[in-house]
Write a protein that binds this DNA or RNA. Structure first.
Length: 964
RNA sequence: GGGCGAGUGGCGGAAUGGUAGACGCGCUAGACUCAAAAUCUGGUAUUCGCAAGGAUGUGGGGGUUCGAGUCCCCCCUUGCCCACCA
């Protein structure tokens, strides 16, 4: 018998596939349905990939291999993210030019990917740093420019003083530079932007319908961050101009007690008077010097100064002081807010610090006015408990706990019930402390111990029962006057359960309770309006609309939608990127380089490192910078910034479809057939890259260059594999595992691949287990031996029962694996194949193995469904079985449902929901028969006894539950 | 602080509301061997019992259901993303 030697057969078949162009796709071949799958392209930074990356790349490989076997023309491209900061920084680190550093690093990437046996079409490789590629990136820039979606604007940008360079948002981690770890600041520079906000609404609305991993969709929606609210105009006393604020809570407009402007707000300097000017100027200057990070790190202590001016609240004519405060962000909304300290935490903190009025306008009473509570305390919409006390003589209430911590009270009391009298007292003391901390006013002291001891003396599992009993008893005692002590107070511990325990609070009482609360706490939610003139009594949601309507009639406000997402800043003052194809002419301003002069080649420079200042190294290449204006021929200068690396990777999936086209970026006809990407996966870039790609795709769609507005039909966001120590695998931690190392130690690519898929479901982080690959190797070795024994054996006559047994297994796993691959459940696909192989071994031991219809189908179907996971061993065995073609094209087994229906089934017999017996019966058995069999069963009898079943649940083919 | 997930043996994990712990790792006993490795066979949640079998058991507390790891409510722990976004 031949031994399984992965090293030998993997090398052999990789060579054969390359020579035969097995995975090469002919775009013009439309004879089969198309399937286009890919993983996010790797950034080339030298280390090569580790086993965590390997897993990511494999998901698309399995999808594409399965489809290829199922008769699709399946395309699996590969390319390199070659431009951008990571590559340039890597080059700086190793002291080589980026081009050289990149090309050298790429060698190892390719070696790794090839050895892992991914079925890429290597003939269509793409690199974002090739002039043939970035020519079209620049062309896209021109298109965006021509359509008003690329523009220049003065804007503050992250700046690292240590590295003397600007940083992209994503390169700032927690306020620190990703490279040197020092704090970053902001610097005001003229920058290029792409107007992604133009598509914010469109993308947001399309997000829900995408067949993408939910988490990614949520992150994208949060990032776009749409808020619907209103813009309200405030007149400034003694001036003609207005302050416009944005708010999502126009229903709190009557509660505004001051206006706050961002220090960068243009009106600030005009609003100061002689008295305040010095303070205001100082504050603005100070804020500008502070980085945003510093602002955040100051423990959110609010700062600000009064400008000396006042604004008029359009709804009630109140005079509101105008402040400057850096907690107001210049970049969001209008850079100005109306502050409602009674209902906004930040405004509240500010108002308290500077002693500004706080005016409550919302009563957070959750009473549905259309359906007022009849005889229940329905204010708290949860099945939980409220502890409060009431003084009947004054009608006053106090809550001891409420809202989110309500359950804390019940838990504490339950603790008292369960433990002892002592702990009951302790628990109740805790509640009192908590009440004091929460600022709740205790109107009258209650004899807590009485209540707690009652609970403690009535131990029971059922909280509700205790509550009922206690209520009854207290009521009873009360009526008899025994609980009313000398101080004539009435103590009640009321358990509130929405459905069950009705207490006796009227809506008026509920309001009273809330009012007591409101004196001490901030109401940030919704409720009923008070102190709001004609809008009093309205619910927030209605008041919002009515107030905006009213403002609109007065011409002082309107509905407004804002987004957190900002336009995409693409300028990089760095060398290693696609040059922005712009020429600055003294007369014509920014003029795009004509399409027929593209690409603007990135010149080779010796010193590419950022010098600080505000330009890239390109600024020093005089003969490159100094050119003539394309419009008038006047001496002009090239733009010396390069484009963000994300720009280069926002359209590569289109270039994959036409990588050698020198007439256009891609042929729309090819895209029409092959687009969009059917399956896309990655473990990173959940927000930026995917949003940018969607933005460009929508733009191309409007231009008629592509056939759909969304680039990725299905997007799978997989989790990382962690290092064995449970931390993230990273080069800096030194805990990465090189796939080459594992393959070279004799296990080969197939074992590694199988383990990578078996380790955990795709969306779960799991630590790498060094013993895992040997486990996968054992499985493949068992497959190998099984196939070898079959190949070497002669004819074998099996009786029908055994034939069927084998065939049933083969059909079962074929169905299971087919469906699991479709549903991205790769780990269970493998475990079911392991199970099947174990079953085959048992049958083989008992009945032998040899040439027969059943064994033939079992072996061949197993190899076919295993092929996407372990392509080499399956190809080798397929070949040894005598096939001259490859198993990887057009070979997928079919299952027949008739083998999946057993004649006998195991029925689980339960008594009161507990398993008491299992019966093997014919699948056609009637309910009456199975009931009789069950009731005759000895073990069932002991649990049913003489009792008569009150109910029998029968799930045909599965289970019988006898309820007695 | 906000949003979204997750919590099941010693470990990774499995389970359309219907037999919890598949499959693998590890551990363990045995077979083969002079021996070891490799391989094969059996065992492996806790607990009571000679056994048959019983009781308990999916972070904690409640609920819905004939039946809950799964659905609902609250709490705890943990991961990721965003974070003074009005």
């Amino acid at each position: 018998m031949k031994r399984y030697n992965p090293t030998e057969i993997e090398k052999k078949w990789q060579q054969v596939w390359e020579e035969n162009n097995t995975y090469k796709v002919d775009f013009s071949d439309h004879s089969k349905p198309k399937y286009y799958a890919m993983s996010m392209l790797p950034g080339i930074t030298g280390a090569g990939i580790h086993t965590g990356h390997g897993r990511t790349f494999q998901f698309s490989d399995i999808k594409v291999r399965a489809k290829r076997q199922q008769g699709y023309n399946a395309y699996h491209p590969i390319g390199w993210d070659s431009f951008g900061l990571p590559v340039e920084n890597y080059a700086i680190k190793i002291g080589k030019k980026p081009r050289i550093a990149h090309d050298e690093a790429l060698v190892n990437f390719k070696r790794q990917l090839k050895r892992l046996g991914y079925s890429y079409d290597w003939s269509k490789e793409v690199s974002t740093a090739d002039p043939e590629y970035y020519k079209w990136t620049q062309w896209i820039f021109n298109q965006l420019f021509a359509h008003g979606l690329a523009y220049q604007k003065q804007s503050p940008q992250w700046w690292c003083e240590t590295d003397q360079t600007v940083l992209a948002n994503e390169q700032v981690e927690g306020g620190k530079c990703w490279r040197c770890g020092n704090q970053v600041t902001k610097k005001n520079l003229k920058q290029w932007f792409f107007k992604i906000t133009e598509y914010a609404d469109e993308m947001l609305e399309a997000t829900d319908d995408l067949d993408w991993t939910e988490m990614v969709k949520t992150m994208q929606k949060n990032w776009i961050g749409r808020s619907v609210g209103a813009e309200v105009e405030f007149k400034i006393i003694g001036r003609d101009d207005l302050i416009t604020v944005f708010t999502t809570r126009p229903d709190t407009l009557f509660g505004a007690t001051f206006i706050a402007l961002a220090p960068e707000h243009e009106l600030v300097k005009n609003l100061a008077n002689d008295k305040t000017r010095q303070a205001v100027d100082d504050y603005v200057l100070q804020s500008a010097r502070k980085s945003e990070i510093e602002r955040m790190n100051e423990n959110r202590e609010k700062t600000g100064v009064f400008t000396g001016s006042y604004a008029i609240n359009p709804v009630n004519g109140e005079k509101l002081p105008i402040w400057v405060a850096d907690y107001v962000l210049a970049g969001y909304g209008t850079g100005a807010i109306m502050a409602v300290p009674a209902h906004d935490e930040r405004d509240n903190a500010f108002a308290k610090k500077f002693d500004i009025a706080i005016k409550q306008v919302i009563m957070p009473c959750e009473i549905d006015q259309n359906n007022p509570p009849q005889d229940g305390f329905d204010m708290v919409e949860r099945d939980t408990v409220v502890v409060h006390l009431m003084d009947k003589s004054t009608g006053q209430f106090a809550l001891l706990d409420w809202h989110g911590t309500l359950d804390g009270v019940s838990t504490a009391i339950m603790g008292g019930i369960e433990d002892s009298q002592t702990s009951a007292e302790a628990a109740l003391n805790e509640i009192k402390e908590e009440a004091a901390l929460g600022g709740v006013k205790i109107v009258k002291e209650l004899d807590w111990t009485t209540a707690a001891l009652y609970c403690a003396s009535h131990k029971s599992q059922n909280r509700k029962a205790i509550a009922r009993a206690f209520l009854a008893e207290v009521d009873n005692l009360d009526n008899q006057g025994t609980i009313s002590d000398a101080e004539s107070k009435i103590h009640k511990l009321i358990w509130v359960d929405k459905k069950d325990v009705a207490t006796h609070l009227t809506p008026a009482h509920q309001k009273l309770v809330w009012q007591l609360l409101n004196e001490n706490s901030l109401i940030s939610g919704e409720g009923e309006l008070i102190n709001s003139g004609t809008f009093d009594g309205m619910q927030s949601s209605e008041a919002r609309e009515q107030i905006v309507d009213w403002l609109e009639q007065q011409g002082t406000g309107h509905i407004k939608t804002t987004y957190k997402m900002r336009d995409w800043l693409i300028s990089r003052q760095r060398y290693w990127g696609a040059p922005i194809p712009i020429i600055h002419c003294p007369d014509h301003g920014a003029v795009p380089v004509p399409d027929n002069q593209l690409p603007v080649i990135l010149p080779d420079v010796d010193d590419f490192k950022p010098k600080g200042g505000e330009t890239s190294a390109l600024a020093s290449v005089a003969d490159w910078v100094n050119v003539e204006c394309p419009l008038c021929g006047k001496p002009s200068k090239r733009e010396t910034d390069t484009m963000d690396g994300y720009a280069c990777s926002s359209w590569y999936f289109l270039r994959y479809l036409d990588p050698f086209n020198d007439k256009q970026a891609w042929d729309p006809e090819v895209e029409k057939h092959w687009g969009p990407v059917d399956f896309y996966n990655g473990a990173d870039h959940a927000v930026a890259h995917l949003l940018y790609s969607r933005f460009w795709m929508r733009f191309f769609y409007k231009l008629g260059l592509v056939s759909t507005p969304e680039p990725f039909k299905r997007m799978m966001y997989n989790a990382y594999i962690l290092a064995p120590d449970g931390t993230k695998m990273s080069k800096s931690r030194g805990n990465t595992i090189d796939p080459l190392e594992i393959m070279d130690s004799g296990y080969g690519a197939d074992s590694l691949r199988v383990y990578e898929m078996f380790i955990a479901p795709y969306d779960l982080e799991a630590p790498w287990d060094t013993r895992g690959v040997p486990g996968a190797y054992r499985f493949l070795n068992r497959v190998w031996k099984l196939a070898q024994e079959y190949i070497e054996a002669g004819d074998l006559n099996l009786d029908d029962k055994v034939q069927t047994e084998i065939t049933v297994i083969a059909n079962r796993i074929t169905k299971k694996v087919t469906e699991d691959i479709l549903n991205d459940k790769f780990n269970t696909a493998i475990s079911s194949m392991m199970e099947a192989v174990n079953d085959y071994y048992k049958i083989k031991e008992k009945n032998g193995i040899g040439k027969s219809t059943a064994w033939s189908f079992a072996i061949e179907s197993l190899l076919q469904i295993l092929a996407p996971f372990a392509p080499h061993i399956t190809e080798e065995l397929w070949n040894q079985l005598g096939h001259s073609d490859t198993v990887h094209i057009d070979h997928w087994p079919k299952w027949d449902d008739k083998y999946l229906q057993n004649d006998t089934v195991t029925i689980v017999i339960q008594v009161n929901g507990k398993l008491r017996a299992k019966l093997d019966v014919s699948k056609n058995i009637s309910q009456i028969e199975i009931e009789q069999l069950a009731l005759d069963n000895d073990n069932v009898k002991t649990f049913v006894g003489d009792k008569k079943p009150t109910k029998i649940i029968y799930v045909p083919g599965r289970l019988l539950n006898i309820v007695v």
